[in-house]
Simulated assay, not measured.
Amino acid sequence: MTEFDLLETLGRLDRLTRSEAALARFFRSTHRQLAFETVSSISAKTGVSKATVVRFIAKLGFDRFSDFQKRLQAEVMRRLESPTKAFAQYRRGGKSSRDYLGQSIRQALLNLEEARNAIPFDLLMKAARLLAFSPGSVYVTGQITSYGQAHFFWVGAMYLRPGVRLLDHAQSTLPCQMADVTPDDVLLAVTRRRHTRQTQRVIAHFVQRGAKVVLLTDDIDAPSAASAAIRLLAPANGAFVFVSACAAMAVIDALLWAMADLLNERVSERLQGIERLQNDFDTHTAPG
Rank of each mutant, 00 (worst) to 15 (best):
L130E: 04
F153T: 01
A150H: 05
I220Q: 13
R209E: 12
L16R: 03
F62K: 06
L7M: 09
E20L: 07
V76N: 05
E275T: 10
F68Y: 13
D184T: 13
T9V: 06
V214L: 06
S227H: 13
A86H: 10
D184G: 11
F65C: 06
A247M: 03
A222E: 05
A128I: 05
S172A: 13
S224W: 05
A258N: 09
D185A: 02
M259Q: 06
T182Y: 03
L123A: 12
R78N: 11
V207C: 12
L16C: 06
V214Q: 03
A222P: 04
R55H: 02
L6D: 02
R64C: 02
D218A: 08
V214K: 07
T199E: 07
V76I: 10
S227A: 13
A239W: 14
F206G: 00
L167G: 06
D221C: 07
D168E: 11
F152A: 12
E75G: 12
L123D: 07
S41R: 03
T17M: 01
L23R: 04
F281E: 12
G148R: 15
S146F: 12
K95Y: 15
T17Y: 07
L188A: 03
S66V: 06
K50M: 08
D184N: 13
K212S: 05
T217V: 01
R266I: 09
D261P: 03
R276K: 14
V267Q: 03
L166Q: 07
M77N: 14
N237D: 15
H169W: 10
A132R: 00
E75R: 06
R78P: 00
A44T: 14
I144M: 14
L277M: 12
M1E: 01
I252F: 10
Q69Y: 00
A157C: 07
R193Q: 12
L109T: 03
E75D: 15
A222Y: 03
Q103E: 15
F206A: 01
A239F: 11
D67G: 14
Q73A: 12
Q89N: 14
T46F: 04
R270I: 01
F4K: 12
A118Q: 01
K126S: 10
E269N: 13
N237Y: 14
A51Q: 12
D14E: 14
R55Y: 00
T283F: 13
T196G: 06
I220P: 14
C246K: 11
P120T: 03
L215T: 08
